[in-house]
Amino acid sequence: MSVRGKSRQCRLAITAALTALVGWGTQLRTWHWLVVAAAAAAVLPFLLGSGYAVGLAAEIGIYTIVALGLNLLMGYAGQVSLGQAAFVGIGAYTSAILTAKVGLSPWLSMVAGVTLSGLTAAVVGVPLLKLRGHYLAMGTLGFGVIMNILMVQWEDLTRGTVGIWGIPPLSIGGFAFDTDLRFYYVVAGAVILCMAMASNIINSRVGRAMRAVHGSEVAAGTSGVDTGRYKLQVFILSGAMAGLAGSLYAHHFRYIEPASFGFGHSIEFVVMVVIGGMASIWGAIFGAGAVTLIAEQVRRSLQYSPIIFGFVLVAIMIFMPWGLWRGGMDVLRRLGWARSRQRVSAR
């Protein structure tokens, strides 16, 4: 079928475009690359052509927002969350219920979705973040699984496994963002805003404090960093960003069901951060793109993709714990093809 051939071309084009985008980014200063990113995002749909590829690019953008938030938590504050899909679900369900069932404006619903997922993160974060390492991982996992079971069982509110459909598109005045192309630009705007925010945070006093917590929580604490407060703030921020992504998800697909917010997806978000590289803003796009395209492949035909997926994950963690992007840059640098820069030790 020609559609399949075309979509493979599209996927290649997406990958090439993303790689080019990432390659530019490291050579420039923060606000420079934001402009470059905006320009690249603006022309990307014309390179992609088909609606299918543009829709996929929008989906990648949505996951990029989740990965960005999780990257702040994992890469900068050094805390794990294996329940991030639950926050995406809270955002998505808030938007879906308020628009499709209550009839509220999509924009207001989105604000509610972000607020509610941030609030949930605050409420569960206070007790959960007292845990460390494996225990925090399992605690967040337990939270995620329970939220997912609630989405299935609380049928009066969520319609259970049947899901919620008829979610209206976002619109301004009479203009509805109801095609893949139109919605892509909404997502692209949101991604660039989130990236700008994330990079501002990282380069601020808060960012330094977060990195100190990652380096050594005890050392950070003794030098006067309120470690508990910073960890909670980052956790709330990552939850709210996941909620924003969830609201966008609801308006992109206009249909949601509990299966989209389960344990497997929480793991996928962690994998996005790892492949893209912990403590790397550009890595979020790279990781979200790689994982979404691989997952798309799995859904199509390749039955043995999880084998490769798992293998690559283990190999990256053993040989390139900072992710493919920085690991690749290291190789280039060793070959003398890229500028060197100061960096902390790999582990």
Binding site: V80, M278, S305, V314, M317, P321
Partner: peptide
């Protein structure tokens, strides 16, 4: 990866579980 951080080790065993499920 014996001297790796906790996050790294968590992800390694998660990767191994995905691999084995595959």
């Amino acid at each position: 990866a014996r001297r790796a951080s906790v996050i790294t080790l968590i992800i390694i065993t998660i990767g191994a579980s995905i691999f084995l499920r595959g």
